[in-house]
Amino acid sequence: MPLPPPDPFLRLKARGAATNPSGRFEPQERSVAHDGWDMAEDERLLRTEVSVERPRSVINHVASPDLPFDRTINPYRGCEHGCTYCFARPGHSYLGLSPGLDFETKLIARPDAPAVLARELARPKYRMNTIAIGTNTDPYQPIEKTWRVMRGLLTVLSDWNHPVGIVTKGTLIERDIDILADMARRNLVHVGVSVTTLDPALSRAMEPRVPPPARRLATIRRLADAGIPVRVMVSPVIPVLTEPEIEAILEAGARAGAGAASWILLRLPYEVAPLFRDWLARACPGQAAHILNRLRAMRGGADYDADWGKRMRGEGPFAELIARRFTVATRRLGLDRPLPPLDRTRFAPPPRPGDQLSLF
């Protein structure tokens, strides 16, 4: 189904999507129609709105055989970074919102999440395993500077000696190096920093509110210098568009101090596919058909294949070539080994006033 036309009187400053199509669960499709009376003075800037959710629980348990974790936490719903390719966009459909502009402008903060997490960790039936944060929307998106939900979560996890893996594009993570470095000394944290391209102009068009590539590489350096295990994530790999940069991104990550690397092929589930096709038509019209044809060659002829084992890597000769290039480059750069294992033996309730102190 084609996307509705953009609202010509809506100013989209640094936004990834251009339209606001209805989610897949909505019974009606909404589109903008002007009656001819609109004037240029009616032009308006689309601004970010933040609402608050009071969650009853924050640990989400997942059972995906191709994921290296079984639980996650989302400090926020939606993401102001506005990456055009973000596979998390369809999640806004469950809220009755659009995966398009709503996803990057109508955000939901969960300020009670740290307190809720502490209650969940204190339950007698809780069984500890590494928590992943940033696997859906970025915990260090711009609104974290104000809401500080992620810092609160890290404080709780550090107090409980609970291992955590973090994925981000946001340089705001540097604010929390004090907590992260202390956790790293106890082998409780890994960080992955995503670098999609080294081209700042392409990054600006494709990831409009994400720090530029050079700034993300500087974040890798600052994390590594603080003793925090960090990997460079070449994700998503977009055929033809960013795929030629695989080796260059890995080399830049290695120079910045990354200790490991990973990659994921572009994923276009549900409403993401038409949104990304629309962006390609606007931003890369001369390459759009080539990019989509190459992607479909790795997705069984479709825009996306959600089968376990295929959704992250694709299949066929082009996918195999990308995997081989990645393997050769990481071996050459010393990025082909995993980060040090996290310590799962320290988990325990933090001391409280009145507790008897240990003699040893």
Rank of each mutant, 00 (worst) to 15 (best):
E271N: 04
I228W: 02
L217V: 01
D66H: 14
S358I: 01
M312Y: 10
T84H: 06
R337T: 12
I264C: 08
W279T: 11
P269A: 05
T242D: 03
V50K: 04
M206F: 11
Y76S: 12
C79T: 07
R151C: 00
A289D: 14
A273Y: 04
R151L: 07
A201V: 11
A40E: 13
T19C: 14
K13L: 13
D278A: 15
A273P: 07
R294P: 05
M39R: 15
F318T: 00
L46N: 08
A214H: 11
L265R: 14
Q141D: 10
A302Y: 08
M312G: 01
V328T: 13
I249H: 06
E53C: 01
P65M: 09
D307C: 01
V240Y: 03
R54P: 01
F318D: 14
L198F: 00
A256L: 03
Q141S: 12
L3Q: 06
V52T: 15
P65K: 10
F9G: 04
S194T: 15
G170T: 04
A63Q: 11
L250W: 09
I143L: 15
P285V: 11
I166Y: 02
R44L: 04
E43K: 05
I173D: 01
K106L: 14
R215Y: 02
L188N: 05
L46T: 07
L357Q: 12
L107I: 14
W147C: 09
Y270F: 13
Y304I: 00
G227R: 05
S64G: 06
A18R: 15
I220F: 12
P350V: 02
Y85K: 02
P211R: 08
A88E: 00
R311T: 10
L67T: 12
S22C: 14
G253H: 09
R296C: 12
H81Q: 09
D66G: 09
I59E: 07
V116S: 11
N187I: 00
G134W: 00
D176W: 05
R352L: 14
D225M: 10
P269H: 02
A252H: 10
P338T: 10
L3E: 01
P124A: 09
T135H: 10
V237S: 05
E315H: 15
L275K: 08
L202H: 08
R77H: 12
S64R: 12
L46P: 03
R294F: 05
R313W: 13
P75K: 00
P68K: 09
F360Y: 06
T197R: 04
D38Y: 09
R47K: 14
L333V: 08
L154K: 04
T146L: 13
M206E: 09
L265Y: 01
R56T: 11
R222N: 12
R299A: 07
S93A: 15
G314S: 06
P269V: 04
L275S: 07
V32S: 14
F103A: 15
